[in-house]
Design a binder for these strands. Structure first.
Lengths: 135, 135
DNA sequence: TACATCTAGTTTAATCTGGAACCATTTGCC
DNA sequence: GGCAAATGGTTCCAGATTAAACTAGATGTA
C-alpha cells in the first residue's frame, strides 16, 4: 500500500481546481458574474444576511459588502432592512439573479462534468463520499 | 447507484480547499509567504523561468514578476541573466528560500493531513488515483 | 434606567491584481 | 544578411481586495 503525501494530494487538487476555474471564469463573465459572486448567489437562500454569508464563504466582510453592492446594481438581488433588527439587511434573489445563478451552475456542471467523465461511476460516488467526510 | 451532481462535488471540494487555506494562510505569513508565493517557490526547481512559472501556475505574467520581486527582496531566490538568451532570467532558490518552502510544505502536510486522517488508507490511495486522473 | 459589550454592516486607506501596451531579444523565413 | 513574427519580461494603471477603524443598533447586567 503506497504512502500518500497530503501535500502532493493538495497540489494535484489545486491544479485541477485552478485549471477548471480558468475554463469557467470567462463563461461566467458573460453572465456578469465573478466566481465568488456566483458562489455568493448560490448560498443566498441558505444564508440570507451578509455577515452570515461572510462566514459561510470564508470571506472578509468588506468583500461581501462589495459583492452585494455589485449584485444589487445588476438587480440580481434585493436588500431589505429587517424590521426587528435594524442592523441587518435580508438579501433575496430576484428572478434575474436566480436565473443567472442557475445558468452559472450549468456551466460548472458541464465543465466539471467533462472532467468527471474520465472516472467510473463508482469512483464518482466514492469521491462524493470522500468530500462529504472531509468537509 | 446514486446520481452525482458535478456542481455539488465542486462546491464541497471548494469548501474543503478554502477552509483549509484559511487555516494555513496565517501560519505561512509567519514565514513571510503568501500561498501563491509558496506555490511559486515549490515549482521553481521544475520551472526556473518566470514565463514558464506563469504557465505552470496559471497566473498572469505581471503577477509573477511581482511575486519574484518580493521573493528576491526576501532573499528567497536569485535571478541570473541567462547568457545564451538575454531576454531570460534563470531563477534559483537560495538555501533560505528552500528552507522556507520546506517549512511551508510541512504546514500543508500537517493541516491537510489532519483532515485526511478521517479517511481510510484505501480511500486516501483512491483519492490520489482520482486526482491523477482528473489533473 | 444606565452602561459595557457584542454584532451587523460600511468606510477608509493601503495593498494587490491583471489586462494592455511596451521594449529587448530571439527565431523563422526569404 | 534582413525583416516580420514570436517570446521573455516589465511597466502602467484601473479596478479589486481587505485589515483596521468606525457607526449604529442589540443584548446583557445590575
Amino acid at each position: 500500500m503506497r504512502k500518500i503525501s497530503p501535500w502532493a494530494l493538495w497540489t494535484l487538487n489545486f491544479q485541477v481546481m485552478t485549471s477548471l476555474l480558468a475554463g469557467v471564469a470567462p463563461r461566467l463573465r458573460a453572465l456578469r458574474l465573478e466566481v465568488k459572486e456566483f458562489l455568493l448567489l448560490s448560498k443566498l437562500d441558505e444564508h440570507p444576511y451578509p455577515a452570515d454569508l461572510a462566514r459561510a464563504l470564508v470571506t472578509p466582510k468588506p468583500s461581501v459588502t462589495f459583492m452585494v453592492k455589485r449584485m444589487e446594481a445588476l438587480r440580481y438581488l434585493r436588500r431589505e432592512l429587517q424590521p426587528d433588527d435594524l442592523r441587518r439587511f435580508r438579501l433575496t434573489l430576484t428572478p434575474a439573479g436566480r436565473s443567472a445563478m442557475e445558468s452559472a451552475r450549468e456551466i460548472f456542471d458541464e465543465e466539471f462534468g467533462r472532467r468527471l467523465s474520465r472516472l467510473t461511476q463508482a469512483q464518482r460516488v466514492e469521491l462524493m463520499r470522500i468530500f462529504e467526510r472531509l468537509a
